[in-house]
Design a protein around this nucleic acid. Structure first.
Lengths: 156, 156
DNA sequence: CTTGTTGCAAAGGATTTGCACGGCT
DNA sequence: AGCCGTGCAAATCCTTTGCAACAAG
């Protein structure tokens, strides 16, 4: 089940977006709606370019520049978040209705889980405080081998 | 005190590099030695381009392509490591004689501390295992405000 | 001598931007 | 009507690559 199939996130995100646009005297255009709709649908970690192709596969015709511009806009509106797996490509994930999490990425099949451990989260604050820092955010990427790939490689 | 001022790291890194070059039938050129020497000296988180300019400030004349190629080589030899603060630029740090660590970055002054907490490290393994993953590596970036910047902003 | 290396400049991939036209409010 | 958004293509940024001259083993 994708996020938008819940029928809840989509509606809220749409209104958040409309509100954001109004408050910033920006315009509510069909392209922006299209992008938001499919972005919530996808629920993957698209790069701007991947997402552009995804849209075209879905029969939507939106310019590449508009995709880049709108994904940024969605981040500004708090609906999307940038993620960065270390391969130099900026990806985007749904950042609304979906709290903070870290990423657990299989090095073989690239499967990507969103994970969270409160103890780690709080130890990070403690660690930062040890140096006098006040933590504002963090990014944690865990790389490993997923159970499926472990099995596959044993039998191979 | 920079790493190379210890007089120890530099020597070891040089021999590791020579050894690596020999074992891979690669050549020990003046440019490669120059780059390695200043790389250890710098002890910063340079991007390839920054490092290229740094070299030229130091009066060394090495082509940009050679800098890119050699930094990669240093990574392959285990002397350098790529880091990625999330701004889409690949940076390099000394990865030899300097164990694993995470990064604590001040959002205001960009000061960058290398930090480590064993408890966090081990909880990461536990977290991955919870999903059946075997952890191979991870990257943790903590963003916050350093004590100096906190003071500055209070008085301002 | 053979093979790898260098430096240049051109190519590349990802992302941004200038501009004229078209669409919201 | 006025102003913002769109799409295109050109521009930019960072990085890689092809190639001919050159140097290390």
């Amino acid at each position: 089940m994708t996020l938008s199939e819940t029928g809840v996130i989509l509606k809220d995100a749409l209104s958040i977006f409309s509100e954001y646009l109004q408050q910033n005297s920006l315009k509510d255009t069909p392209q922006r709606r299209t992008i938001l709709k499919h972005f919530l649908d996808g629920n993957e970690h698209y790069s701007a370019e991947e997402f552009y192709h995804y849209l075209h596969q879905k029969g939507e015709d939106v310019g590449q520049a508009t995709v880049y511009r709108t994904l940024k806009l969605l981040c500004a509106a708090g609906i999307a978040k940038e993620v960065n797996f270390g391969d130099g490509i900026t990806r985007f994930e749904v950042g609304y209705g979906n709290g903070h999490h870290d990423h657990l990425i299989c090095e073989l099949c690239k499967e990507n889980l969103e994970v969270l451990d409160e103890e780690i989260e709080s130890l990070q604050r403690v660690l930062a405080a040890r140096y006098g820092y006040t933590l504002t955010s963090h990014r944690l990427y865990l790389y490993g081998i997923c159970p499926k790939c472990k099995t596959k490689n044993h039998s191979a």
